[in-house]
């Protein structure tokens, strides 16, 4: 990289209006200095360098940005980081424990429940949230409860197969 160019550039980064937001992401406390208009999604992807959480629409229409916030699945694109001060966030990077994949992650691989992989983190986080909610019992209910996560590759049947397998095993 050309160092001289970086040094010549005057970076007048606007630090006004920032506040410190404490987020415990995947068990690690992060103190982020962000402006109020930074979305939780951008705080995770850009400010915390956890790019596993995806931006597919930025408007709550695709589900790719799904994370678990205090145990519940939410869309991080429709939340501001400042609103979640003090919250515990689990992203896709925090789903496996000590390198062991979560059963859903394993099931997704076995069932080929993804193609391009871009909706996958959101599908998995959403499915974990759904299983914890415990409101979906039949395959039809699981499909309805997972309908906030779009998959453009058309891996739908494999995704639901993977989730049903884990759901039935954990019952």
């Amino acid at each position: 990289m050309e160092k001289e160019n970086q040094n010549n550039q005057i970076h007048h980064y606007d630090e006004s209006n920032t506040s410190v937001v404490n987020l415990t992401i995947n068990g690690n406390l992060k103190q982020l200095k962000v402006q109020p208009w930074v979305s939780l999604l951008d705080a995770i992807r850009d400010h915390s360098n956890l790019t596993g959480t995806k931006k597919g629409c930025d408007h709550g229409q695709c589900g790719a940005c799904t994370v678990l916030c205090d145990g519940k699945r939410i869309l991080s694109c429709l939340s501001l980081a400042v609103m979640k001060d003090g919250s515990e966030i689990t992203t896709i990077e925090g789903i496996a424990t000590d390198g062991d994949l979560h059963p859903l992650q394993t099931a997704f691989i076995e069932h080929d429940a993804f193609q391009c992989g871009y909706c996958t983190p959101g599908q998995i986080c959403s499915a974990i949230g759904m299983l914890q909610e415990g409101k979906a019992h039949t395959r039809e209910e699981v499909k309805e409860q997972m309908s906030g996560n779009l998959c453009r590759c058309g891996a739908n049947t494999n995704i639901i197969d993977a989730i049903m397998e884990v759901k039935e095993k954990t019952l």
């Binding site: 959480t53 992203t91 994949l101 993804f114 992989g117």
Partner: peptide
């Protein structure tokens, strides 16, 4: 199985 599967399900 897809060889990059692990990277895709872990966000890597």
């Amino acid at each position: 199985n897809r060889l990059e599967g692990n990277l895709k399900v872990t966000g890597a």
